[in-house]
C-alpha cells in the first residue's frame, strides 16, 4: 500500500512529540518512554508511580479525540496486516522493548537527544531489524 510522504506535518508532529517529552521532564523529571509508562501502569509497583503514568496515558488517548472534535476527522489508522500478525508483532514488541528498556520514544527520542550510549546502540539495532523483517515479509515471502 502506497502512503503519501508529508514532510511538513511529519516534522511538525515531531516537534509536538518532542515538546511533550520536554514538558514531562520539566514538570515531573521523567523520561517519556511509552514502554515504561504502559508497563508501569499495568504492572504498577506503587500508587504514586501508577497515578502519573495513568494520567499520561489518558492524555495520550484523548489526543486523537480532540483532533476529531476540531477537524471532524480522526487521524488515519490503516492496518495492512492480519489479526494474527498484529498479535505476533505485538507480543514481540512488548517482550523486546521491555527487555531492551525502551522503544522509539524512550530510546529513539529521549535517549538519542541525551546522547545516551545505550540508546545510540538500541536505535540503529531496532531500525535495522525492522527493515530486515519487513524486507523478508514483503519481498522474500511476498506477503
Amino acid at each position: 500500500m502506497v502512503t503519501v510522504f508529508k514532510p511538513i506535518s511529519s516534522f511538525g508532529g515531531g516537534l509536538a512529540i518532542g515538546l511533550g517529552a520536554v514538558l514531562l521532564m520539566l514538570s515531573l523529571g521523567r523520561i517519556l518512554g511509552a514502554t515504561g509508562i504502559l508497563s508501569g501502569t499495568i504492572f504498577a509497583e506503587d500508587r504514586e508511580e501508577l497515578k502519573w503514568r495513568a494520567a499520561m496515558i489518558l492524555g495520550m488517548i484523548a489526543a486523537p479525540i480532540l483532533i476529531f472534535l476540531f477537524t471532524g476527522k480522526m487521524p488515519d489508522v490503516n492496518v495492512p496486516i492480519s489479526p494474527f500478525m498484529i498479535v505476533l508483532g505485538g507480543v514481540i514488541v512488548g517482550f523486546g522493548a521491555s527487555l531492551g528498556s525502551g522503544c522509539t520514544s524512550g530510546h529513539g527520542v529521549c535517549g538519542l537527544s541525551r546522547l545516551s550510549v545505550r540508546s545510540l546502540v538500541a536505535v540503529p539495532t531496532f531500525m535495522a531489524t525492522g527493515v530486515i523483517t519487513l524486507y523478508i515479509i514483503r519481498h522474500v515471502v511476498g506477503a
Binding site: L88, A97, T125, T129
Partner: peptide
C-alpha cells in the same frame, strides 16, 4: 531486546 523490538515493529 532492541533487535526483537525492531522485528515486532517491522
Amino acid at each position: 531486546g532492541s533487535a526483537l523490538f525492531g522485528v515486532g515493529w517491522g
